[in-house]
Design a protein around this nucleic acid. Sequence first.
DNA 1: GCGATCTTTACGAACATTTTATGGAACCTT
DNA 2: AAGGTTCCATAAAATGTTCGTAAAGATCGC
Lengths: 239, 239
Amino acid sequence: MSAIDEGKMTDEHRRILVVDDEPQITRVLRTTLSAQGYDIRVANDGEMALELMKNWTPHVVITDLAMPNLDGVGLCRQVRQMSQVPIIVLSVRGQDRAKVEALDAGADDYVTKPFSMNELLARIRAQLRRTPAAEQQPSAITAGDFSIDLDARSVKVAGNEVHLTPKEFDLLVYLARRPGKVVTHRTLLAAIWGPNSVEQPEYLRVFVGQLRKKIEIDPSSPKYLLTEPWVGYRFESGL
Amino acid sequence: MSAIDEGKMTDEHRRILVVDDEPQITRVLRTTLSAQGYDIRVANDGEMALELMKNWTPHVVITDLAMPNLDGVGLCRQVRQMSQVPIIVLSVRGQDRAKVEALDAGADDYVTKPFSMNELLARIRAQLRRTPAAEQQPSAITAGDFSIDLDARSVKVAGNEVHLTPKEFDLLVYLARRPGKVVTHRTLLAAIWGPNSVEQPEYLRVFVGQLRKKIEIDPSSPKYLLTEPWVGYRFESGL
DNA sequence: GCGATCTTTACGAACATTTTATGGAACCTT
DNA sequence: AAGGTTCCATAAAATGTTCGTAAAGATCGC
């Protein structure tokens, strides 16, 4: 009944990942947040959260600090390797030190338990408010002979459709969204394979090779998918 | 003496607007934040803050709630009409309702007084962290015939593009970011090769030579990449 | 079990960096 | 002013990484 609900309610279909090992917490969050119209998924620890995020990218992450396997601070660090998604830490620990550590590890907000649900909801809204740009992504990318349909996950080169595997597609899209910009190996690996794969540049070599075989006219002298030696790769939208 | 740590100054030159009518608060914030390297301006109420922001756009706004003329919530609404700048509300009022109202009015964070300065600093860092790169650093450096595109990692001299290796690129960028300023051998070596390579000036000679071959019209009488004998090198942006 | 996809391995070629060598210029001492 | 020393520029050899490619194992879904 707060006085401030003027029809700005575009919160539907926003995905929230809740990470906590205490069932009481996850249960109440799941029901409350679901009632607000959010899509909720729950993970019981940091590792599980990372695993989940490979296939399901949330708009906000809410995480506890104390967890088995991978704690909240570690989770923040790992997530920041691959994503800018807002992270709200929810913890019983209220000391400066804990807050500073979490915030500097990549968290965007820190709420101490016990917390007011109204406040948490408002903080979620505040976080969601400034990520509309990410959601307004075009459903298609075109560049030169290229057209990438993001909804259908299909790619056409000079008229004819080519079939790409999921990872090939993700890789191409990630680069094609940043035309002309060099993306480092680390960034690319973290974004496509997850933050644990940051030290496996072989993946990139293999998949870039595969991609070039499919989308380049002459794979041995690529026009679109270019190597920036010792640094990374970049996508050029046809010269 | 000790190694010059140029890499750690990302928070410098960030502008923070403090809005509060209590002199004790503004005084302590001004001194503490200034000591951190931020540029601080103070306004005593919301109206004054808006006036100030016409000519001086901050990277973060920190505001009290209770103020004459225009209070914190009103300030949030007005600011949101024209800017996405992060707003941190600082207030003695700790009730849900106040928090929800402020956050829904456009605030990004809410801290209750009395507050821990360490926590506030961390929250400021968290807010600054996600302001888009466009605001932080130019993605291009231009100087005379030069243009360096940091995203594309490409360098153009008088129209034609030259390809630089990673170390060459890093070296040039480091110097070009400080035009006219002499950078000592030690500093350069520490910055590009790491603090363990401070005693290997041969690297510099070799790489400066290669850079000159690529970017100077007459490498034997350089125009841009100049030697400061016995001290270091400096970049001049074309006389 | 089968096909598609992903992961892992291996190796020659291409490339960047490090090391070494040489000649010349600038500085210091006497 | 001569000799010795340190620094600078350049070239080129030696070393070490990375890249592209192919192909063999591992994994997943049906």
